[in-house]
Design a protein around this nucleic acid. Structure first.
Lengths: 118, 118
DNA sequence: CGGAAGCGTAACCAGTAGGTTACGCTTCCG
DNA sequence: CGGAAGCGTAACCTACTGGTTACGCTTCCG
């Protein structure tokens, strides 16, 4: 499902469908690629459940199915929520690494002076 | 950047690094693929800014860089936020389509009875 | 009824992504 | 100092992805 969003054309289609439902023809004519290519992109999105279609005569109306977006969003939130934590730990970690290297070179536990890292 | 997350191995690496920073060796040994393969995955993540590395002697400590995750998360929120809206409009739309088809077949404006859609 | 419109699929082709092995460079340590 | 450890990169191969054209099926309409 993440693979479906990886493609820029498919992302554009989703943004298009976010504004309003559209028949396949209308979607295809907004891209510089051929209609069958768009048709396959639509199939990928359909199989991922990101998009649904309603047959309407000889047309086929596509619309967004937002239910699936939550999954990826939830996965991402597992990372963004810890941003602050790591941000705080980061400089401390970097300092620690530098200190360790210096210690080993000197062969002893040096105080945390920073004259060569500043 | 979305392409970086598309790969399952890279997602697993990110989840791994979310727990704690790790040297490349430790990351590689948790996957059934070769070490150079993991090394390239790490490069992709690095170039996307999802991950950063700190040289530590002959090792290279990798850690998460959560700042970029917000971008994708923000893009996704543009869809999830409208979930309720479209969910409400959806059945109405579907009904409308069916009604239109029926109307055209009959050649007149039919009342919105639902005997064949219910 | 018959042609046009709207879509999807099949077959084919080129570019890329991800895997492997071989290799080279730096860092550690006996 | 010299071998081992830890990484990254290059070269190569295969598989998949995304694009195109050709085609077939259903639906509309003069």
């Amino acid at each position: 499902m993440a693979a479906a969003i990886a493609d820029p054309v498919r992302r554009a289609i989703l943004e298009l469908l976010r504004e309003q439902p559209l028949p396949a023809r209308r979607i295809a004519e907004r891209f510089p690629i051929s209609r069958p290519a768009v048709s396959r992109h639509l199939r990928v999105l359909r199989e991922c459940g990101l998009v649904r279609d309603i047959p309407a005569g000889r047309e086929r109306h596509y619309h967004l199915d937002p239910s699936r977006f939550g999954e990826l969003s939830a996965w991402l939130s597992g990372f963004t929520s810890r941003a602050a934590v790591w941000g705080q730990r980061l400089d401390a970690l970097e300092t620690e690494v530098h200190r360790t290297r210096r210690d080993r070179r000197r062969g002893g536990a040096a105080p945390d002076r920073l004259e060569d890292t500043a």
